[in-house]
Amino acid sequence: MITAGVDLGTQSVKVVILKDGSVVGRGKAFSGFDPAKAAEQAMDEALMTANLSLSDLSHVTATGASMALAPKADSTVSMMGADAKAGIFLFPKARTIIDIGAEEARAVKCDDRGVMVEFVVNERCAAGAGAFIEAMARALEVKLEEMGPLSLKAERASPINASCVIFGESDVVTLIHRQESKPEIARAVFDAMADRISSMVHRLGVNPDVVLLGGVAKDVGFVASLKRKLGIDILIPEFPEFAGALGAALTAASKAERSQK
């Protein structure tokens, strides 16, 4: 059985194609102004890598902030539901799944059956999400990809405010004026964000194993900060940014299975 999951995120659209429980294709495109078109592009890319055509897909499930815009989706699943599915699929022992995307951070708690029992969302603020790192990178005049490696060089951290992207940025400027070194500021940025995320996760309770998904999981600097804050090892899959789409594809698979019965 072949199914697909489409994750229409705020920044990019990700597609995962699943064939009998294994990933055969991935596709990604920037959302831009037309998420529907981006979704089609990402789908084409995924189908191409998988060597399949649209008609091979028995079920397509959409997820993400603009899931309602997904073309040709048979069903939808919430982002938290998709995270839980993907987290358990990737790491069967996962109990706490954190997903940090461009503009939203979520934490999901699963029970031992792999069912989502509780979730929290970083409400209406980008300070705990990828966009924060981006804005801070801009203020530091370094590339986004360099932020992580840069922060690892720091010996200590200077505290900054992570309650708001805008205030955070002005804090960073203050630190620059105080002539703090760039690695230290970068680490401060990650620490502040990890602080926010960890307090969000603590609302659920930190139950191992903890899995980190979403694009931000690729940032070594942030992962190091979060590990320090939570005091626990964090599992990260190979393609964390595709986890939402993977979860959607898994949902699609179970839905298709159910409809076959």
Partner: peptide
């Protein structure tokens, strides 16, 4: 998401 969780 909450309703989905309840359904599950």
């Amino acid at each position: 998401a909450f309703l989905e969780m309840l359904t599950a």
